[in-house]
Amino acid sequence: MNTAMLFGLCASMLIGLGLYGLLTHPHPLRKILALNVIGSGIFLLFGAVALRGAAAGMNADPVPQALLITGIVVAFSASALAVALLLRLFEVTGDVSLANDDPATHKDTSKDRPHD
């Protein structure tokens, strides 16, 4: 098994792990963390593809690698915005719950649930 294939398979599993965390964790911060695990898995998969593209005396295809650097920075800015939104939610409501069926914290739900 070559390096690209090994890390490609590893990346597939990382994406699955992150997706499981994103779907099952009730805490929004854990969802952001899980999203970052998914993101790093996708980056690693792309990195494996870049390694397969080694040619013309270069050890890997530089175009996907440059896009990866851009991707990592953009993923960080998205995480920073998500964390700021979460901290603001905590400041305003005193809680970090994402559930919308709790009448105590959401008084005006009539618009969201017309059949109620």
Binding site: T3, L33, G47, A50, L51, N59, A60, V73, F76, S79
Partner: peptide, 26 residues
Amino acid sequence: AWARLDGLDVALTEAAIGGGLTGFLL
């Protein structure tokens, strides 16, 4: 892993931003 995938530029970015700054933020 990035070093093993011959992506030293990506490795530096990952160390600085992916692990470092994101970890600090979280």
